[in-house]
Write a protein that binds this DNA or RNA. Structure first.
Lengths: 346, 346
DNA sequence: CTGAAAGCGCTTACAG
DNA sequence: CTGAAAGCGCTTACAG
């Protein structure tokens, strides 16, 4: 714990290096490297001396230096919309587990649904030389990533496809799930069904709208323009969209909510409404079965999305030279009550 | 896009360096460094030539090399229990925002409540030379961190204190919140109140138990041993603990649930129970107001915890040589219905 | 079994 | 305004 003859120290803010360990143990640098990395070819006696020096100095290998020399950083980046959103927590954790099983760390960042911030984050991660990227894109033009991908940064998009480049993508079956949800409402007798979704520039919103329209068309039902409302999922916007559909001369008798945030607000609006209205929401959430009526949802498996994307990423890093793929994860309709309410004509 | 005379290339997996840019632009290395870092002292013409070379080669500065030379990595580590837990999402996001405002990236890891995994993660982050650490500890002995802290890794513990070392910590007022919750139930007429909490080695569980006991004692109420059950928060364990308390000869008339996972299971158990039982839960959650009866909770502000911890961390990194502090974030009782149910004697 | 030299891609300190 | 040399802390390739 004291200074060595060669000036090595535990001074605050200064860390011992392999050189310091070598000097203290009276061996060469390479021998220290061998011990630290568990390489063979060191006599037990030498090894002991090196270990003692390591312990005495509190040495810990500087992985930044190692990374610079080796080329691989053993870290991957995950860019998503918002770490605080309950949909992305399980997705993140799943990516982390896969990374961990490959000995890699995870650097996480939120784009806040801002394309400029997404790009800034992604390029910062590339500058750190992450081995790969899992991206839930906010923007719709990812040509800025082309040089990085060409330089070897494995990249997989999740939840939404990449824009204007050819890259791996793992999606939920947004179209099929939405179609099933709306078909379910139709099967329960509804003819006037409203859809409140996220901003139309978001891929999932577009796909879910397409599912809605397809189900309506398949049943031979017309879609009144006032039944569809895409935009921000902020409570105020959703609230007024729902209020409008419910107050029309011929009001909707059922609502299809385009994601979990919309569903939560829709539940609050319907609770205050004078007449029962059916509801199916895209995305499951905790306690959906305890609300009254329990909420029928189209569940997507966020952890499955994350696991699949990370798996694809590491397959690339392990050298599989496969062309970009598009994988789709199925969704599941879970009837719980709110989606089975019969239409009540106003 | 073609090879230069000096062999620089866009070959897959190989990235151009400043040296390549310098060669192509016909300038020295230091000039490229100046342009890349926006340093003054470069003529417009030279700058243009360098920029052209950068664009042509698709150069992006390697921050690993930069970090090695500069000493600071501009990244901090966050070790928590489980990224998928809704309590940690907002906390993470808050830490990320503070890091971002200081130009730092966030490396995230889940300990899965395993002390060995916590240590492994923390030391891996130290080896990467993160500038600082925000730790939600799983273990209760953090002496392994002493050399790292001495070497200058700023460290702040959140949600639970560090074990056997003196370090900054930001906590919720677990004791006060629990005491308020139980006092609330007592004020509504309850005398036999059960407490189901997390494993007793976890600091928050101990503190909340202390709050429970203090409130009971303050009201002059005895606590029967069978009314307190600490352990895993897995649904099965919680379910049987609750069932036992409700089936006793003199059953509890109210439950205090020690965290959000316990609360969720308690709600399910009570829903199936033949007689109304009051419930207050520690931790708020989405839709708590939509369940019937709406759930009375003691809310803690996870984002506030994260923001405070990260703020403290960067104050240290910015050179404030303050001694370790212990900050406490207040909790808030939110009455919604389940906590105001009167006792019904069996 | 052991170690000196070169180099990873940058920045720093200095000289022109 | 510009650049050659040294060095950050490791690993690689090689020689003894």
């Amino acid at each position: 714990m004291t200074e060595t003859a060669r000036g090595t120290s535990l001074r605050y803010g200064t860390r011992p290096t392999m050189k310091d360990v070598a000097a203290r143990a009276g061996v060469g640098l390479k021998t220290v490297s061998r011990v630290v990395n568990g390489e063979p070819g060191v006599t037990p006696d030498t090894e002991r001396r090196v270990q003692e020096a390591i312990a005495a100095l509190g040495f810990r290998r500087n992985d930044s230096a190692r990374i610079l020399r080796k080329g691989r950083t053993a870290s991957i980046g995950l860019v998503l919309e918002d770490l605080a959103d309950p949909f992305y927590g399980p997705l993140s954790r799943a990516v982390e587990e896969v990374a961990r099983s490959h000995g890699a760390l995870l650097i996480n960042g939120s784009s806040a649904e801002d394309p400029a911030r997404e790009q800034e984050l992604v390029l910062a991660l590339c500058a750190r030389r992450v081995d790969g990227l899992v991206v839930i894109p906010a923007g719709d033009d990812h040509r800025y990533l082309e040089p990085e991908i060409a330089a070897g940064v494995a990249t997989v998009f999740v939840d939404r496809p990449a824009g204007r480049i050819d890259a791996d993508v793992v999606l939920s079956d947004n179209f099929g799930g939405a179609r099933d949800a709306v078909a379910h409402l139709i099967a329960h007798g509804h003819r006037r069904i409203g859809f409140i979704g996220d901003q139309p520039r978001i891929h999932t919103a577009k796909e879910r709208l397409r599912g809605y329209r397809t189900a309506m068309a398949a049943a031979g039902l017309p879609v009144d323009g006032s039944w569809v409302s895409l935009g921000s999922t902020a409570p105020d916007r959703v609230r007024s969209a729902a209020a409008e559909m419910l107050a029309a001369r011929e009001p909707v008798t059922a609502l299809f909510a385009g994601n979990n945030r919309v569903t939560v607000t829709a539940v609050r609006v319907l609770r205050a409404h004078h007449r029962p209205v059916a509801l199916v929401g895209f995305d499951d959430f905790e306690l959906a079965d305890l609300v009254h009526p329990a909420i029928t949802v189209v569940a997507q498996d966020a952890a499955h999305l994350g696991r699949t994307a990370a798996g694809l990423l590491f397959r690339h890093l392990d050298g599989a030279g496969e062309p970009p793929r598009r994988l789709e994860i199925p969704t599941r309709l879970i009837p719980r009550g709110s989606g089975e309410i019969a239409p009540t004509d106003g």
